[in-house]
Simulated scan of single mutants.
Amino acid sequence: MRLRAAALLCDTALAWEREDRQAVEAAIPGLPKRLTLARRVEWLVGRVHDLQQALRERLIRPKAPALPSAEIPVPADLHEKSVLCVGEPGASASVARRVIEMAGGRFLHHGGEDGQDGPALEASLVAADLVICQTGCVSHDAYWRVQDHCRRTGKQCVLVEQPQALQFVRSREVLAPATEHVKADPASAL
């Protein structure tokens, strides 16, 4: 008899809770849809966090190469390496700077304009482990200095025709041979 009374008490309390919940749901239009969307947003935020973490790990320690061979190979492991960007100091250079610094590298820049300090360009070339030259944005003198220095020293030099092509730094995972000179196709670099 006591067990029946306890079960009856639980059933009554459960029925009251259901009625209260139905009253709340009726008072707030679209509540079930809002709850579903809130759960979806929560899942998406977690997914974005996971993808950002994977990207950070990939920039620092690249996994197996997964890029088409037609794309420009540059070192993905930039930890404690210096990367010289010769060309315009625009938005693409700031993107390259952020990516290089996130990967633990050191970003160097030289404008490559006519009349700029030649010895400063030479010093930057000597300090760099990798050179990225924006061919359409530098003087002929700077272009030839970069080419000559990289050929003499065997330093890797990546040539890009347009500043937007610097965005390729984000996703490269393959290290090209140090003596290779690559001319970037702006369409494949983006």
Rank of each mutant, 00 (worst) to 15 (best):
Lys33Gly: 12
Gln156Gly: 09
Ala7Pro: 00
Ser94Pro: 01
Ala70Met: 14
His110Pro: 02
His181Ala: 14
His149Lys: 01
Thr36Tyr: 08
Asp114Cys: 08
Val158His: 05
Leu51Thr: 08
Ile100Ala: 03
Trp43Lys: 11
Gln147Asp: 09
Thr153Ser: 10
Glu42Phe: 05
Gly46Arg: 00
Asp117Ile: 00
Leu3Ala: 14
Asp117His: 05
Gly111Leu: 07
Val41Tyr: 10
Val146Ser: 06
Glu80Gly: 07
Gln164Arg: 15
Pro65His: 14
Val146His: 03
Arg4Pro: 03
Leu31Pro: 04
Lys155Ala: 00
Thr179Leu: 07
Ala13Leu: 15
Thr153Lys: 06
Ala176Asp: 03
Gly30Glu: 12
Asp129Phe: 00
Gly118Val: 15
Ala178Asp: 06
Glu80Gln: 15
Glu161Lys: 13
Gly104Glu: 04
Leu35Trp: 01
His49Ile: 07
Leu35Glu: 12
Leu78Cys: 02
Gly115Leu: 10
Gln134Asp: 08
Arg2Phe: 09
Gln22His: 06
Ala15Pro: 01
Val95Arg: 05
Arg21Gly: 07
Leu8Phe: 10
Leu14His: 14
Pro119His: 08
Ser69Arg: 15
Gly154Asp: 03
Thr135Ala: 13
Leu121Ala: 02
Ala123Cys: 03
Gly115Pro: 06
Leu190Gln: 15
Leu44Lys: 03
Ala120Tyr: 03
His49Val: 10
Ala184Val: 11
Trp43Asn: 06
Arg97Trp: 00
Glu161Asp: 09
Val169Met: 03
Glu101Asn: 03
Trp16Asp: 08
Glu161Ser: 13
